[in-house]
Design a protein around this nucleic acid. Structure first.
Lengths: 235, 235
DNA sequence: GCTCCGCTTTTGACTATACAAATAGATATA
DNA sequence: TATATCTATTTGTATAGTCAAAAGCGGAGC
């Protein structure tokens, strides 16, 4: 037995997560939702306020409420966009696509991702360069059945991470951060030495239970760190 | 011009953060707050619901609302208690205090922490052992003016992190995660090799703008990782 | 063209009230 | 004594309204 407020909340949330309503779309104004759910304005308002507080929608007087830009999660976002963040902080950032191919998932990887072994995927390898020095290797797998539009995307101008964030709305994400020693291939690409301590971030992202992407970033330890400030209250 | 709802929210939040109300304390029931703030029950309810949603208080029918156990931040908590988590996951965990001394903060460190150079601190070094193998070195500084009770605490039974979490309520926390190579002292303690990739987590915690503690955990890269699953909605 | 003014829509905050659900504690019953 | 039942308290959800603040829009006047 769910409350009306919860039903409105999850209904709208589902529409956003499933991609039916995309970022920037306007959602029905309170008046319309009141009519639709046959409830009072307070109830609708409570649901919309809760969605706004979680950053899923943005509310503006007179114009109505809109689906916000995807975030996955604020703290995750902090981690995710360190490269972009560096750029905003005045560092020059660009990237190169080292490899791009479409293939089917192998046995081992399929098990790792809990996906079917014959699933078609786009496999990418990118190098991120900040202030002229290699900052990260990105090895990414994109599930083509979940994101068919990736098939035609060249990723020439937009890095895959950013592109996916625009393309695929919210999702669940799992992160693993480890310290690893650079193998020779990695060391060569990152212009560092074999055995050098590197920071590895693996992220798997889901949308409605289906894997969207699996990515590993490897950063040279002397040129990179994750940082974040957390405090209980923003309001 | 702040709303009544926000005033109630921040008033209670302040009392919890400042430690006036400690975990487990009961907070005034809605009826009392209505009288105190001369507002309607809905307004009080909104403030308390918001506090509950952020995990600062727990609400129970008939008995009232109580200050929840400190969390700092849920995602941070996930990172923080990996050792404890390992224990819950069936691994045996214990720790040793390697060093414990009270001294005054040196110039360099003082600058690093943005604190006064002559501030009295408790300096701790611990070794965490999981399943018989060294899992982390913990190097910690506790500001004694912020946590005077640490002076008499031996940390024989409760690890410093856990003790502080019980002792000092919410706070702001800053995290930095890096990959570092083990120096010889670290390698010896962790029973690994010099130059081995290690994961370093530095955390500085504040309470009302004053530094409470500064700690660095160094984990051997082959025996440790941070993991976390995030999803937008819990409700 | 331009600015200013008022109208209207939409969200934000709040009130006063109602009833339902949970439950601790007292009371009655086997 | 142990168990079932009642009762009072507190939170949870919802209603139906009010007033205010923000902001887009159009028209009047220049």
């Amino acid at each position: 037995m769910v409350s009306i407020y919860q039903r409105i909340f999850t209904d709208i949330e589902t529409k956003i997560i499933s991609g039916i309503w995309r970022p920037g779309d306007c959602i029905p104004v309170e008046r319309e939702l009141v009519a639709q759910y046959q409830c009072s304005r307070m109830t609708v308002s409570k649901a919309l306020s809760a969605l706004a507080e979680r950053g899923m929608i943005v509310r503006r007087r007179k114009t109505g409420s809109f689906v916000a830009s995807p975030q996955i999660d604020r703290t995750v976002m902090d981690i995710q966009d360190i490269s972009t963040e560096a750029e905003l902080a005045g560092h020059e950032h660009h990237f190169e696509i080292l490899a791009r191919k479409i293939e089917r998932l192998g046995e081992v990887e399929a098990q790792q991702l809990s996906e079917a072994a014959d699933a078609e995927v786009l496999r990418l390898q990118c190098l991120h360069i900040v202030d002229g020095r290699p900052n990260a290797i990105e090895r990414r797998i994109i599930m083509l059945d979940a994101v068919p539009r990736a098939r035609e995307e060249s990723f020439a101008s937009t890095p895959p991470g950013k592109w996916l964030l625009q393309e695929v709305p919210w999702s669940k994400a799992k992160h693993v951060i480890r310290a690893v020693s650079a193998d020779s291939a990695t060391a060569r690409i990152l212009q560092t030495e074999k055995g050098e301590a590197c920071l590895s971030l693996v992220r798997q992202t889901w949308q409605n239970g289906r894997t969207v992407t699996y990515v590993e970033f490897v950063h040279p330890g002397d040129r990179f760190q994750f940082a974040g400030t957390f405090h209980p209250m923003a309001n």
